[in-house]
Design a binder for these strands. Structure first.
Length: 783
DNA sequence: TCATGAACTTAGAATACATACA
DNA sequence: TGTATGTATTCTAAGTTCATGA
């Protein structure tokens, strides 16, 4: 077969071209001129529409909705009074409209709105009609409840007791916080927050302490019903309190000693601090690794005084055991603290959260994801990271850039210090940034996934993936054609794309050698990462993949591929060394440029989202049977989720207690089986009794015993389902796909279709992140 | 055109917290 | 009530993508 294929004239010509190309590592990558037509018109179109917020679906949705709202407002006016009001509003709107456009374009600095100029965003949800994503069916948004209605009463009672006890403390914190005060003032000043609504804190507790308000579900801000900026700006107003700095180092008590070469040695505070970082990790595998020890020792010595440096020359002679024991004891002591002491810590954490954990972005209070500066420590790179063990230095205010509105109250640096810079850049979403010393990369403080700015982007991501669904067949035909191309670069691009599509591989950027662990993705695969088998295990054209991917997670897979792919791979590998690039004429930027020409917004990453979501949808359809009970349906969901996690290679380390917990579960199952057989015996004897006595009492006894059997059978089934689920899941991480790859509307629709409470699929945090989807998707949603 | 770096998403491990059970 | 175990949250590393400037 190979001979026939290579015998093709075009291919032979092509072979000649390649062999003259010679080199095969990415350093030699060819700069062949693209003979293809460049799709110039398409590019121009794209540029015209190129705005981050320009996703057509989303934009269209907002516009349609806005028009719809306006229409409803016109129709809703039934009384004269209303009419007058309406007139007034319209009049006001006419006045405001140009100003609004100006605002969107940032011609003038943002001011907190004190006029009700955005009234139209806050119609009663009941009267609101709007277009759903792509179809034309009517959509009625519903109020979102923050608290889960189905919370177990017992747990609720316990919580209530605890809450009552602590409420006054939280109450004090809540109102003593100056930022909150400002936030509340702002919120009440602007019309888009209804002042009468009771504010709840993070835990859903009522801040003003009124019981009555607790019963009313809080109405959450539905940003997805509003218009978005179209000028590339991320916000108009941003105010926050800055980051929480890492706690200063506290020197060890004198009883905790460090020994060098068997002799006690007192370290200066700088060297001691770094030594404690190592001591805290003594039980960890890291401290046994050569690279870790070497890097640590090198950086540690930099912190030593010259005297320390001259004495401490060999890490093997260092004894950190007392330090290690001290930290272990501290951690034990923390666990054994009294309830009161634990509460004090909780209260302090809550105070910090309230003060630093929120910001105001465009009139709304939003939760910040990571408001603490990363504390100093030893770098824990994944896999064989060449820099593991290096000292992550302490970040000072002088290293920190603050980003906020010009007209906001700027965060203050700690007394006697200065920020590196105060910036007012509304084209970015971060609040705080600094450069870390290990890789020289920038770290950011950003908003929580539930925030508008993050969730909106998430929604957009799934819309792009849905767009891919519309044209994926065309794209697949195209890359199949490209397998036959005269040009090597096009063949490589097409085969790589096939892998990205079929196997959900990551794009695979080039990495600087020696800077990080040796991991690869699709474009950076090397010859040594695949093996070709014309026949294996009864299948033809099998490719065996074996490489380390992101986070040094091993990807191992044997897949039969199409014959042309196989032949192309043979061709790509010809005359190459194992360490040479498989796709030497390709990189992620070439690939993404090509994808961009095929579909607006398409990048390699979109295939992962698309394939993950479509797989979930298909699997749910396949696996859910209508007559199953709730636990079985949830098992089906988890199995569908698992199929995606396997596709995306989301693995986790086997939990340390896995064997034990499985054993415990098995014991429970065995015990339940015993109970069940006893109960069945009871039914038999009760029936025998009934035969003899033939009275009502005996009849009732039979019924009761039968019910007991049914109950036990159900309990047994639940346990068995749990065991199956756990076993199937032991090395697979479901969370990553659930959080990042699966269009939440698929899950919401599935829940609605089968009457599954959403709480069974998404926990509280996940429900907050996917609030838009929970509100939006109906049972017939199609990805 | 390419290299670089900024910005943002995705990832598993570690830790904190909640719940079940003895 | 204390302990074991499971789940949620936090942490931060490690990716991808895109803009920018030489």
């Amino acid at each position: 077969m190979a001979v026939i294929w290579r015998g093709n004239t075009q291919d032979r010509l092509y072979q000649d071209t390649i062999s003259s190309g010679g080199g095969n590592s990415h350093k030699h990558k060819d700069k062949y001129k693209d003979k293809e037509h460049k799709h110039k018109d398409h590019k121009k179109d794209r540029e015209r529409e190129k705005s981050k917020y320009g996703n057509s679906d989303h934009k269209e949705f907002s516009e349609k909705k806005h028009r719809e709202k306006e229409r409803i407002k016109h129709e809703d006016v039934s009384t004269d009074r209303h009419k007058d009001k309406h007139k007034e509003k319209d009049h006001r709107k006419e006045e405001i409209k140009p100003k609004k456009e100006k605002e969107n374009g940032f011609a003038s600095p943002h001011r907190i709105k004190t006029e009700p100029d955005n009234d139209h965003f806050y119609h009663s949800p009941k009267s609101l009609k709007r277009q759903r994503d792509n179809d034309e069916t009517e959509f009625k948004p519903k109020k979102i409840k923050i608290e889960n209605d189905r919370v177990d009463k017992k747990a609720k009672k316990r919580k209530q007791d605890e809450v009552r006890g602590n409420l006054w403390i939280l109450y004090l914190i809540y109102f003593s916080d100056p930022l909150r005060e400002r936030i509340l003032m702002r919120l009440f000043l602007v019309k888009d927050i209804k002042p009468k609504k009771t504010q709840k804190n993070k835990k859903g507790e009522v801040a003003d302490g009124k019981k009555k308000a607790k019963k009313e579900p809080e109405e959450k801000w539905k940003w997805w019903e509003e218009e978005r900026a179209t000028d590339g700006s991320k916000w108009r107003f941003l105010e926050h309190k800055g980051p929480v700095m890492a706690a200063p180092y506290e020197t060890l008590p004198s009883k905790v000693r460090f020994f060098y070469d068997g002799k006690q040695m007192k370290l200066g505070p700088e060297a001691e601090e770094v030594a404690t970082f190592f001591a805290k990790m003594l039980d960890h595998e890291y401290t046994t690794k050569d690279a870790f020890r070497k890097n640590f020792f090198k950086d540690w010595r930099k912190e030593m005084t010259s005297e320390e440096k001259s004495k401490i020359t060999d890490l093997k002679k260092c004894n950190f055991n007392e330090m290690g024991e001290y930290f272990k004891a501290q951690s034990e002591a923390r666990k054994a603290m009294t309830k009161d002491d634990k509460l004090k810590i909780k209260v302090e954490n809550e105070r910090l959260l309230q003060e630093y954990g929120f910001c105001i972005m465009d009139n709304h209070k939003e939760r910040i994801a990571n408001f603490r500066i990363e504390p100093p420590g030893l770098f824990r790179g994944r896999g064989d990271h060449p820099k593991m063990g290096m000292l992550k230095r302490r970040i000072r205010p002088e290293d920190i850039i603050i980003n906020c509105s010009k007209d906001s109250k700027h965060p203050k640096p700690p007394p006697g210090t200065k920020w590196k810079e105060l910036r007012h850049d509304n084209k970015v979403t971060w609040l705080v940034s600094w450069t870390e010393n290990i890789q020289g990369s920038i770290k950011y403080i950003m908003l929580n996934p539930s925030s508008r700015i993050k969730a909106e982007k998430d929604w957009q991501k799934y819309e792009t993936a849905r767009n891919l669904k519309k044209c994926v067949d065309r794209l697949r035909n195209q890359y199949r054609e490209d397998w036959k191309s005269k040009e090597m670069r096009i063949r490589q691009r097409a085969v790589a794309l096939y892998f990205i599509d079929k196997l959900a591989l990551r794009a695979g950027n080039e990495k600087e050698e020696g800077e990080s662990a040796d991991t690869v993705g699709c474009c950076s695969l090397r010859v040594e990462h695949i093996n070709l088998y014309p026949e294996k295990d009864g299948q033809e054209f099998v490719v065996e993949f074996d490489f380390l991917g992101k986070d040094s997670i091993r990807y191992y897979n044997k897949v039969p591929v199409e014959k042309r792919v196989f032949k192309n791979l043979q061709l790509f590998m010809e005359n190459k060394q194992p360490e040479d690039d498989l796709f030497d004429r390709l990189n992620t930027s070439i690939l993404n440029k090509h994808l961009q020409e095929l579909m607006d917004g398409l990048t390699a990453k979109v295939f992962r989202t698309y394939n993950a979501s479509i797989t979930l949808q298909q699997q749910l359809k396949e696996l859910t049977s209508p007559d199953e009970n709730l636990p079985a349906k949830i098992l089906s969901y988890n199995r569908a989720n698992r199929a995606v996690a396997i596709l995306c290679n989301h693995q986790r380390a086997l939990p340390k207690t896995f064997e034990k917990s499985m054993q415990n579960l098995q014991t429970k199952i065995d015990a339940k089986k015993d109970q069940l057989s006893d109960a069945k015996r009871d039914v038999k004897s009760a029936k025998a009794d009934l035969k003899v006595r033939r009275d009502e009492k005996s009849k009732k006894a039979v019924e009761t015993k039968k019910k007991a059997v049914e109950r036990l059978e159900e309990q047994l089934m639940k346990l068995e389902v749990q065991a199956t689920d756990r076993e199937e899941n032991k090395q697979i991480a479901l969370g990553t796909s659930k959080l990042n790859y699966l269009d939440p509307r698929i899950s919401v629709a599935w829940c609605k279709k089968w009457g599954i409470p959403i709480e069974k699929i998404y926990n509280k945090t996940q429900r907050e992140k996917f609030a838009w989807a929970i509100d939006m998707a109906e049972d017939d949603y199609e990805f």
